[in-house]
């Protein structure tokens, strides 16, 4: 369910590309520093977007650094971090933890339990620091799995539930922006959930497992997804985003479609 909110690098200037990559590397760095090397592999692009978005809204500067990492051991590369990066790293760990636990309780994947065990201590620390976010993530994922178990046919029901999780993660602190931020995060979460369902439909049909879009003709998928993104943009426009505006809009108007376009291409080629 994660890693959908990415940029379209083809439409970014070299500077913007660099800014985006270093944001991602900053998150990776913060994960390693705060939660241990093992947590680094749970990194996802959605949390990179969270950093860009909140840093822009709260006009946060950043500190630059250079490092070598496992993935790029030869070249050193630049990264940037700020207090939002730390927050996003914490949310990243909480999401990964609950996601593993969820896989364990739903599908009894032993591996997921082991992976969750690796994060249990880190997650506890995160939960103490961000009780609101973590209790919403935990409760909503349980609710979501109940909805899915009951084979709910109305896609709005599970999408609203998943939206709640993203909505809560976007509420970095309590202030004048909280309500609009939550609304924006919720709308984005709904889009992510439904897009994931659209992409997975064929596989879910074959595996005979739950998919909320099973009764919707796939010819309508694009229209529905456009509708959900339109909702998200409506909420986005209520927030004063200036810093990295082009980068953020690249993601919201173009990048979010990357995985969807990719899966459509595979279908055309007959890979799925």
């Amino acid at each position: 369910m994660f890693g959908y909110i990415v940029a379209n690098p083809d439409k970014l200037s070299p500077d913007e590309n660099q800014r985006y990559k270093s944001c991602y590397c900053g998150l990776c760095n913060a994960l390693g520093a705060r939660h241990g090397a093992v947590s680094r592999v749970t990194i996802n692009y959605d949390m990179t977007f969270l950093i860009l978005f909140l840093s822009s809204l709260y006009k946060k500067g950043c500190t630059y650094g250079r490092e070598r990492c496992l993935i790029h051991p030869v070249r050193t590369h630049t990264f940037w971090t700020n207090e939002i990066t730390s927050y996003a790293a914490d949310m990243n760990v909480a999401l990964a933890y609950y996601n593993f636990m969820d896989d364990w309780s739903d599908e009894k994947k032993v591996l997921s339990l082991l992976e969750a065990k690796l994060l249990v201590k880190e997650n506890k620390r995160v939960a103490e620091q961000h009780p609101n976010q973590c209790s919403v993530i935990g409760k909503s994922l349980i609710e979501l799995s109940e909805i899915e178990k009951s084979n709910e046919l109305n896609p709005d029901v599970p999408a609203n539930c998943f939206g709640k999780i993203m909505g809560e993660i976007f509420t970095f602190k309590d202030d004048e922006y909280t309500q609009n931020l939550r609304a924006f995060g919720t709308a984005l979460g709904k889009f992510i959930y439904i897009m994931d369902a659209c992409i997975d439909l064929k596989q879910d049909l074959k595996k005979e497992c739950y998919n909320p879009m099973i009764m919707t003709p796939s010819a309508n998928f694009t229209d529905i997804l456009n509708l959900l993104m339109a909702d998200c943009i409506e909420k986005y426009k209520l927030l004063p985003i200036i810093q990295d505006k082009k980068l953020i809009e690249n993601i919201l108007y173009s990048g979010v479609w990357t995985r969807y376009e990719e899966s459509n291409k595979k279908i055309e080629k007959g890979d799925i």
């Binding site: 439409k11 456009n226 509708l227 993104m229 809009e249 990357t258």
Partner: peptide, 14 residues
């Protein structure tokens, strides 16, 4: 949705 789709395709889909 249509307004968004227009803006999105102006942007260029990935």
């Amino acid at each position: 949705g249509r307004v968004y789709q227009k803006q999105s395709s102006d942007y260029g889909r990935p």
